[in-house]
Write a protein that binds this DNA or RNA. Structure first.
Lengths: 210, 210
DNA sequence: TTAATAATCACCCAAACTTCGGTATAATTA
DNA sequence: TAATTATACCGAAGTTTGGGTGATTATTAA
């Protein structure tokens, strides 16, 4: 445990009490130091070149720019900065938005001393700290819907459509005529209630059919 | 901690030594019991109605049917069965295949007494046990590529394409002419080296451009 | 500050592909 | 046996794509 430098941490959190409590906890550690604590993203982003944080603890709900947009901007400026979202809610859509924006961890505001520091340690170790519920939410998001209305053949064809294949390519790959492929696709569209390939792909991804 | 019944666990693992070692560990717990241990998926699936497992510990590399296909089939028969993959490799593609097939956890064969039991506990608690590396792999898989060759406008349009919108809908949504939308899309195709919407969506998803 | 580059917008035509609305038969499964 | 699934064909209407051309506004580099 002989780190020459402490990891630089920035906290972005509008609730002053939580901000100070988190600062105290982080600074109490041998391996981390708070180089900046802000009540909004705008100020934090303006100070980024000076602070040079390796890790950012980012609230999602913030006055002005929200934490998701802030995450995007910070990652855009320096993609090696690791961002941990700090939130009260474990709301599904927000989680995925934050992850897409570039967050690598997800903890709740109720995190205690140990939880906060072990999340930081986990990030340094190259992991992705998150609560049981978030982990499960993320994993479940990969699962394919077992209640698909499509037949096996239709699912195969939808898969090929999602890979960007044309009618001709699909028919060649499955050794069926182009007209048959067309029929299957018509049936897929009718079951999914869509009328184009890209709509079918959107629906398939949303409903986890492939 | 007064559970009236122990959770029913099935182990599918072709290495007899590991299978027996895992069985001993699971059976040593107050909360779990091994109701079946098999060297391949075929036998395990045939015994499913009798074993009625709540949790399956599944090896990926197996003689005959592999663990991913086995996961699909078991989940298909009873989607409330939780499956934990057990593997030597933390290979990227296999992880995602297993998750899509319906796995909810991912541990390595080197797992010791504590790791194995805490993975089982984590599953019961509704979580998703996985190693740091896997967690990070899964999270990174959500991140949008910051090195996109597309402009902001092109990315917006690609996003709309991926939602299944037509040229007309895109032009209306962005208050531009249909011809302009077309020009942007042509430029997107040329940058991504594709020639259709669905191919563009496939590439966008693969390269994490949206 | 100018020059160059990138981004955004707009239009035309022809070819290619997709979608819609039908019809119909074998094979498989419940 | 009835229902479902997978196969196959036709033609008309609609949408997308490819190959051009050109203008206006940022943005960046010299």
């Amino acid at each position: 445990m002989s780190l020459p430098f402490k990891k630089r941490v920035v906290i972005i959190e509008d609730d002053q009490e939580i901000r100070e409590s988190f600062s105290l906890i982080v600074n109490s550690s041998q391996r981390f130091m708070v180089v900046g604590a802000y009540g909004n993203c705008e100020d934090a982003i303006a100070a980024l070149n000076r602070d040079k944080p390796e890790i950012v603890l980012m609230d999602i709900e913030l006055p002005g720019m929200n934490g998701i947009k802030g995450t995007q901007i910070i990652r855009d400026k320096n993609s090696s900065t690791e961002i941990i979202m700090v939130t009260v809610y474990e709301d599904s859509d927000l989680v995925f938005e934050a992850l897409k924006a570039g967050a690598s961890g997800y903890i709740t505001k109720s995190a205690n001393y140990t939880e906060l520091l072990s999340a930081l340690e986990e990030i340094v170790r190259g992991g992705a700290p998150m609560s049981s519920r978030i982990a499960r939410m993320v994993i479940d998001n990969y699962h394919i819907n077992p209640n698909s209305p499509l037949t096996k053949r239709e699912t195969t064809i939808l898969q090929l459509i999602s890979e960007g294949k044309t009618y001709t390519q699909i028919s060649e790959e499955l050794f069926i005529s182009k007209e048959t492929a067309k029929t299957h696709i018509k049936n897929i569209y009718s079951k999914l209630q869509v009328n184009s390939k890209s709509e079918a792909i959107a629906k398939a991804n949303h409903d986890k059919l492939i």
